[in-house]
Amino acid sequence: MRLLATAIGQALITGVALGVIFGLVALGFVVIYQVAGVLNFAQGSFVVWGGLFSAWLVSDLGWSSILALVASVLTAMGLGVAVGRVAVSVRQHGETAALIVTVGIGIVLEGVFLALFGDQPLSFSAPIGQQAWHLANVVVLPEQALMAGLGAVVVLAVQWLLRRTIWGMALRACAANPASARLFGMDPRRMATIAFAIAGGVGGLVGYLVTPMTGMDFGSDVTWTINGFSAAIVGGLGDPLWAVGGGLALGLVESFLGTFGSSAYETAGALVAMLVVLLWRPQGLFIRRAS
């Protein structure tokens, strides 16, 4: 019984840490979809870039992890802008065209990452200590605490930016009605590019956070994209905060599957969870159906 309680507690801790991370990737999906009307399937590439670039800076060049964090996030934002420029210009030919272009960009970036960083997984030492904490018999790794803590800060910051600042309102207005936003001096294309930059930066941060724990290789983008997209669908594409809720739900599903089943089914679990939500509540778990 005690063993079971410990296993459940451990799965919860792992699930929450994993869920925050999925939620961040999902947040990128939702912010871009909300503002630019593009489902960005190159989202996982931002994560891979953040991870590989950080590992290269810290392990090969000997940079401090804080500097590597800043550099990874900034360059991932730049990558976001570049992807955004292409996707937004294609968006005028329809949502599907833009989606396919982002899939293509993801494949091209995989090749670029392979050429730049090689085919072996990279990693680097966690920016905080190695000493695990014990809550009863449940182990909490410092990396997990960092992921959950920093993730929560970023989610709240993005939410504050979108909901509380006048600029964030303008970002949402551009998504809601670009023609009318233009009449009030807003530039929907620029806003869409900024949304890609935000999503890129958040993706770069995720890469930085997970690489010390799981390592990162050039082809990890597909897994990140599937998990992030599934989390966004589970939470509903309508609100960044609910996307994080979707991420948490998905993180817990995968963590419990890994603990009580097999970790081989984790990604499959994400897809099944997404399909169940699509059939049962297509608007997302947390969003009320429009009347």
């Binding site: 006048i166 309102m169 303008a170 949402r172 207005a173 809601a176 009605n177 023609a179 009318s180 936003a181 009449l183 009030f184 001096g185 807003m186």
Partner: peptide, 22 residues
């Protein structure tokens, strides 16, 4: 504009705040 062209999802408060954006 024709058809009012409001911003669905935004509140009245947000509409009037954004009115002075330019």
């Amino acid at each position: 504009p024709e058809g009012r062209q409001l911003w669905p999802g935004l509140t009245v408060a947000e509409h009037l705040t954004l009115a002075v954006y330019p």
